[in-house]
């Protein structure tokens, strides 16, 4: 019994070997981690995710306008404003308004008027963004916050 216990004990040579391997492995691992972390962008040099699109009167009732810079459709009907993302949920191409829905030129995903997928590879429907009104009376779209398609901003 005593012998088995002694064998289990780490002798100095084994300990130093394990410590050395640990030190080298740890250094390499930390290096990879730090490299990766430093390559992840902290600041995105991109158009803001929350943006003003103009005054309500700029948009006619029952119209669909495409805002190119932000890649978003602004829809206005009698009940108010809604904002629909134009970025296909499949692989990021820009969908086109076909009159009774939206279609993606890259891999053929098709969406109906409410943004739901009707055909093609898109894994989910187009995003609806929250629309609100800024104190200066302009409409604000928040592309960080997705909402249900029936939620409209009444003006």
């Amino acid at each position: 019994m005593n012998d088995a216990k002694e064998e289990k004990q780490l002798n100095r040579r084994d300990f130093l070997e394990k410590a050395a391997i640990g030190a080298v492995g740890g250094t390499a691992g930390l290096f990879c981690l730090v490299t990766m972390k430093s390559c992840l962008p902290k600041v995105l040099n991109e158009p803001p995710a929350i943006f003003k699109i103009g005054y309500p009167n700029d948009f006619a009732v029952n119209s669909a306008n495409y805002i190119a810079e932000q890649k978003v459709f602004i829809l206005r009907d009698s009940s108010g404003f809604r904002a629909l993302s134009a970025i296909c949920t499949h692989l990021g191409c820009i969908v086109q308004n076909t009159g009774n829905g939206y279609s993606c030129p890259c891999h053929g995903s098709k969406f109906n008027e409410t943004g739901k997928v009707t055909a093609g590879p898109a894994p989910r429907g187009l995003d609806w963004f929250k629309v609100s009104m800024a104190p200066d009376g302009q409409l604000v779209v928040n592309s960080r916050e997705t909402v249900d398609e029936v939620i409209t901003l009444n003006v």
Binding site: H90, L91, C93, I94, P105, C106, H107, G108, P121, P123
Partner: peptide
């Protein structure tokens, strides 16, 4: 032009087999 994609937007030939596959599931 970041606001209008090519239609069709095709990758070089050696990726077109993959592009056919991603048109089923990304």
């Amino acid at each position: 032009n970041p606001s209008v994609p090519e239609n069709p937007a095709k990758a070089p030939w050696y990726f077109l087999g993959l592009q056919e596959l991603v048109s089923y599931s990304a």
